Amino acid sequence: MKVVTTWAEVPHFESEEEEAAFWLDARLEVRLMNGSLLKADTRESTTITLRFDPRLLARIKRIARSRYLNYQSMIKQWLSERLEKEL
């Protein structure tokens, strides 16, 4: 399997089929994937404390790891998405 280490290695695709064929034998390097994630908002923020059942926190961390995310950032993302849905 080819490991893509720079975005320049990803060709321009003429169709979705061509793109699907490329990604069958290629994957992004973890550092490249992490570098492409949106950076945290640098505006002022407030620190809070939440208490989680250890098993629940372990499950959240496992999901975050599988998505190459920091678990705290993922929780903030979930809360933000749910807030938008509620509003």
Rank of each mutant, 00 (worst) to 15 (best):
residue 1 M to N: 03
residue 1 M to K: 02
residue 3 V to A: 04
residue 4 V to E: 04
residue 5 T to E: 14
residue 6 T to F: 05
residue 6 T to G: 07
residue 6 T to D: 14
residue 7 W to H: 09
residue 8 A to S: 13
residue 8 A to G: 12
residue 8 A to N: 14
residue 10 V to S: 03
residue 10 V to Y: 02
residue 10 V to P: 01
residue 10 V to H: 03
residue 11 P to S: 04
residue 14 E to D: 07
residue 15 S to A: 02
residue 16 E to K: 10
residue 16 E to L: 07
residue 17 E to G: 11
residue 17 E to Q: 09
residue 18 E to C: 00
residue 20 A to V: 09
residue 20 A to F: 09
residue 20 A to L: 12
residue 21 A to D: 14
residue 21 A to C: 05
residue 21 A to G: 08
residue 22 F to L: 04
residue 22 F to D: 06
residue 23 W to H: 05
residue 23 W to A: 04
residue 23 W to K: 08
residue 24 L to Y: 06
residue 24 L to D: 10
residue 24 L to W: 03
residue 25 D to R: 09
residue 25 D to P: 01
residue 25 D to M: 04
residue 26 A to K: 02
residue 26 A to H: 15
residue 27 R to K: 12
residue 27 R to L: 00
residue 28 L to S: 00
residue 28 L to E: 08
residue 28 L to A: 06
residue 29 E to I: 00
residue 30 V to A: 13
residue 31 R to K: 13
residue 31 R to I: 02
residue 32 L to F: 07
residue 32 L to M: 11
residue 32 L to C: 02
residue 32 L to W: 05
residue 34 N to K: 15
residue 34 N to E: 13
residue 34 N to L: 15
residue 36 S to D: 09
residue 38 L to E: 10
residue 39 K to C: 07
residue 39 K to H: 11
residue 41 D to E: 14
residue 41 D to C: 10
residue 42 T to K: 10
residue 43 R to M: 03
residue 45 S to N: 10
residue 49 T to K: 07
residue 49 T to E: 00
residue 49 T to V: 05
residue 49 T to W: 00
residue 50 L to I: 09
residue 50 L to D: 00
residue 52 F to T: 03
residue 54 P to G: 05
residue 54 P to W: 04
residue 56 L to F: 09
residue 56 L to A: 14
residue 57 L to V: 06
residue 58 A to N: 09
residue 58 A to G: 10
residue 60 I to Q: 06
residue 61 K to Q: 10
residue 62 R to T: 05
residue 63 I to G: 02
residue 64 A to L: 07
residue 65 R to K: 11
residue 65 R to Y: 06
residue 67 R to F: 08
residue 67 R to Q: 11
residue 68 Y to M: 07
residue 68 Y to I: 02
residue 69 L to M: 14
residue 70 N to A: 08
residue 70 N to Q: 04
residue 70 N to M: 03
residue 73 S to I: 03
residue 74 M to W: 12
residue 75 I to E: 04
residue 75 I to L: 15
residue 76 K to I: 06
residue 77 Q to H: 06
residue 78 W to P: 01
residue 78 W to G: 11
residue 78 W to Q: 07
residue 79 L to A: 15
residue 79 L to Q: 05
residue 79 L to I: 15
residue 80 S to F: 12
residue 81 E to L: 08
residue 81 E to C: 08
residue 81 E to K: 09
residue 82 R to W: 11
residue 82 R to P: 03
residue 82 R to S: 12
residue 83 L to E: 08
residue 84 E to S: 08
residue 85 K to V: 12
residue 85 K to R: 13
residue 85 K to Q: 15
residue 85 K to L: 15
residue 86 E to N: 11
residue 86 E to Q: 13
residue 86 E to T: 14
